[in-house]
Every structure is written in C-alpha cells, then in structure tokens.
Simulated assay, not measured.
Amino acid sequence: MNNKAVKDVLDEMTKDDLVAWIRNQPFFRPKRSDVLYIRWQRQSAEVLEEMQKENRAFEGIDFKERDRLAVRFNESNDSTEKLRLLELMQPYNKAMQDHIKRSQAFDRKSKRVDALYEQIDIERQKECRA
C-alpha cells in the first residue's frame, strides 16, 4: 500500500484545463453567485488567518516593560535619563504603531470581503428572477 497522499486531480489541472472541463459538463454550469461564494470563502479564510497570525505576533511583545519604562520616564527629572528611557521605549511604540497600521489594513480588506458577500446576495436575487 502506498503511504503517499493521493493528489487531487483538480490540483494537477491548469486554469485552462479547469475552464475547458467545466464548459464540457452539460449539466453543470456554476452560477455567478457560486463563484463569488467560493471567492468570498477563500478571501475570508485568508483575512482571518492573517489577523490571527498578527495577533499571535503582537501577544509576544511585553508592553508591561514599556509601561515600567514610561513610569520611570514620568518620575525622572534628569533630561539625559528621560532621553535614554525614550530610546528604550521606542521599539515598543514602533511595534504598537505597526500593529495599528496592519490592523487598519485588515479592516479595509475585511470590508472588501464583506462587500463581496453582499454581492453574492445581489447575484442570487438576479438568478432567482432569471
């Protein structure tokens, strides 16, 4: 018995192969809503995976240390010490700013995916009327 996983024949097909095969199926023609649903399903999984990956990376940053540095900064009257503490806090601040930027990008991408889902409903309504 072969222990290798059997590769799905669809994985072996090129885009042109798939299109030709579908066009040759007399009883199977995907509707636009079906295609949009598949697209939405794939894109939402990608967004969710990216967001989870970002959240796991963000959890690895110790902001308690940044807070301790900030307390020391606020308590200090020495400008040299304050500058040194600011420099120590800078990587934490940058990490937070970068996280916020990536989160905003995820939000924009998520809105596009949500709009795609709304388009599915519109197409289904058109298909029911046709």
Rank of each mutant, 00 (worst) to 15 (best):
residue 37 Y to A: 13
residue 38 I to F: 14
residue 38 I to A: 14
residue 38 I to H: 12
residue 38 I to L: 15
residue 39 R to E: 12
residue 40 W to L: 03
residue 40 W to R: 08
residue 40 W to P: 01
residue 43 Q to L: 10
residue 43 Q to K: 04
residue 44 S to I: 08
residue 44 S to E: 09
residue 46 E to H: 09
residue 47 V to I: 12
residue 47 V to M: 06
residue 47 V to Y: 09
residue 49 E to R: 07
residue 50 E to I: 07
residue 52 Q to V: 10
residue 53 K to E: 04
residue 53 K to Y: 02
residue 53 K to C: 01
residue 55 N to W: 00
residue 55 N to F: 01
residue 56 R to K: 14
residue 57 A to K: 11
residue 57 A to I: 03
residue 58 F to D: 07
residue 58 F to W: 11
residue 59 E to Y: 05
residue 59 E to H: 08
residue 60 G to T: 04
residue 60 G to H: 05
residue 60 G to M: 03
residue 60 G to W: 03
residue 62 D to K: 13
residue 62 D to P: 03
residue 62 D to V: 11
residue 63 F to T: 06
residue 63 F to V: 11
residue 64 K to S: 14
residue 64 K to E: 15
residue 66 R to F: 10
residue 67 D to T: 13
residue 67 D to S: 15
residue 67 D to H: 14
residue 68 R to Y: 01
residue 68 R to C: 13
residue 68 R to H: 11
residue 70 A to F: 07
residue 70 A to R: 12
residue 70 A to K: 11
residue 71 V to P: 00
residue 71 V to I: 10
residue 71 V to C: 08
residue 72 R to S: 07
residue 72 R to W: 01
residue 72 R to N: 09
residue 73 F to D: 04
residue 73 F to G: 02
residue 73 F to A: 04
residue 74 N to P: 02
residue 74 N to Q: 10
residue 74 N to D: 09
residue 74 N to M: 08
residue 75 E to N: 15
residue 75 E to Q: 15
residue 76 S to L: 03
residue 77 N to W: 07
residue 78 D to Q: 03
residue 78 D to V: 06
residue 78 D to I: 03
residue 78 D to M: 00
residue 78 D to G: 08
residue 79 S to V: 12
residue 81 E to C: 08
residue 82 K to E: 10
residue 82 K to Y: 05
residue 82 K to H: 06
residue 83 L to F: 09
residue 83 L to Y: 09
residue 84 R to D: 04
residue 84 R to H: 11
residue 84 R to S: 03
residue 86 L to P: 01
residue 87 E to M: 13
residue 88 L to Q: 15
residue 88 L to S: 13
residue 89 M to C: 03
residue 90 Q to R: 10
residue 91 P to D: 14
residue 91 P to H: 06
residue 92 Y to E: 03
residue 93 N to C: 09
residue 94 K to Y: 07
residue 94 K to Q: 09
residue 94 K to A: 02
residue 94 K to H: 04
residue 95 A to N: 03
residue 95 A to E: 02
residue 96 M to K: 09
residue 97 Q to G: 10
residue 97 Q to V: 13
residue 97 Q to L: 15
residue 97 Q to C: 10
residue 97 Q to R: 15
residue 100 I to S: 01
residue 100 I to V: 08
residue 100 I to L: 07
residue 101 K to P: 01
residue 102 R to T: 00
residue 102 R to A: 02
